[in-house]
Amino acid sequence: MFTEAYMLRALMASVLLGPVCGLLGVFVTARRLAFFSDTVAHSALAGVAIGLWLGASDPTPAMLAVSIGVASLLLWLRQRTELLTDTILALLLSTSVALGVVIFSQLKGYRGEMERYLFGDILSVSPMDLLTASIISVGVTVLILVWFNALTLITTHEDLAHVTGIPVRWINLGFTLALTLVVTLAIRLVGIILVTSLLVVPAATARNIACNLRQQTVIAWLLGLGSALGGVVASYSFNLPCGPTIVLVCAALFVASLALQKVVRPSGHTPAR
C-alpha cells in the first residue's frame, strides 16, 4: 500500500516526531509554554522565506536558525525589559509572520510553497529531514528522560529545585532548545499553524485519563505516536491535507478521553468545578 518513497518517509517522520512531541507536551502544558511553541513555529515561516530567498534548496537549516534566533531573542527581551512574556511572544510572532509573508511576496515561483509550510505536506519530508529528525528526536527523548526528575521539580517549584542543587538555568535553556528543534522539524508534517496542537493535545488527553505523572507521560507518548501515524495514514488514504488530519485525530482522541475519564476514574480526582 505505502510503497512510494515519500510515503515511507512521511510515516517514518511521524514515528520519529509524534512520540517526542507527546513527551515534550507534558512539560509544555504544565509550564504554560504553548504560546511559546506557537511563536517558535510561526517564526519558522520567516526562516523558510529567508532560506528560499538566499537560494537554499533545503530551507530546514534556515528554519532552525531563525527559530533558535527568535527563542534567544525572547529570553534576551525578557531579561532586558519589564514586559510580560505573553506580550513579548505576541510581538515576536506577528513580526516574524509579517516578515515571512513580505519576503514570500517578493519571491518568484514560490506561490504555493507557503501553504505547504503553513499546513504541512507529507510530500515535503526529504531524506535529509529524516536524518535530522532521527538524530534530534532520539537526542531529545534521551535528554528528557535523563532530566526527568529535574524538569519535574522545576515545573513544581523553581526555587525548590534550585535549593536542591539542580542547575535550573541550564536545564531551562536545554529544554527550550530541545523544544525549538522539535517544533521546527514537526512543521514539515503538521504545518506551522497546527504544530502546537501535536504538543498540547496528546498531553492534555493523557491528563484526562492518567492518575499520576508516570501514566500521563506514557499515555502522552503513545498518543503522540498514534495520532501522528494515524493522521499520516488517513491523509494518504483519503487524500486529505496532512497536518489538519493529524490534528483531527488528536482532537478525536481527546474527545474519547473525556468519555473514558468517567470509566477510568469514576470516583476519581475529576475537577470539582
Binding site: A30, T155, T156, N212
Partner: peptide, 29 residues
C-alpha cells in the same frame, strides 16, 4: 551546606495540567 537545609515554600507553582502525584513528588527527594 544546602543539602543539610530543608525549605518549605508557601505554595507550589504547579499547574492543574501536571499529573504529578504526592507519591511521585516525594520520590523525587
Amino acid at each position: 551546606t544546602l543539602a543539610r537545609v530543608g525549605y518549605v515554600p508557601q505554595k507550589l507553582e504547579l499547574d492543574r495540567g501536571f499529573g504529578l502525584s504526592v507519591r511521585e513528588f516525594l520520590a523525587l527527594r
